[in-house]
Amino acid sequence: MANQGPAYYSPYPAATYDGVITPPEGKALLLTDVVDEEVAMREIAKVMLTSDNATIFPGPQVLYAWNEEAKKKATLIKEMAEVLNAKMIPMYDYRPKYPKIDPEVEINPNHPNLTIWHNDIKAAIFVGVHCHYANVALKIVRAETDCYTVAICGLSGHEDAMATLRDQHSHEMEKFIAIAKEVKAELGK
């Protein structure tokens, strides 16, 4: 049996039931605390660099070259994965896969826990996933796994992730990568 998450016994596995809400503009969310963006970026980099099987889950908004920003983000996410020594598993669309997904190589928002269990992922970044499916996936992961989830979101963030960076575009991602490089050097990873 996989290790369950903090909301496992709750009938409502949603962070809002614990009073956690998305951070205000210019701030980030670390568990239940609203902190400065740089503080959160440093902590996220540390968690990703020190957790087993850290993985980035890029979603459709960055996997496909549908605009210039998406192309730029793709390059940055690839670099981010290299800096964080993280694997990448795509969430390439939201269709419920029949009869089942291959958890080795893909993640589906309707049962993201399968991929996390299978690969024993202890920290993961969700990036480029549309908000409504990020909300679904992060709640399931929160309840069903002990994975530390990070949402890098272009809009207002996700309270169901353990760490949330909001309003993240290519400029902010560059900043995160720079911080991650510093943390990596400090940790000697």
Binding site: L63, A65, A70, A74, I77, M88, I89, P90, Y92, E106
Partner: peptide, 10 residues
């Protein structure tokens, strides 16, 4: 598909 992700796409 963005070329950076081509190798991980099914």
């Amino acid at each position: 598909i963005n070329p950076e992700f081509r190798d991980i796409m099914p």
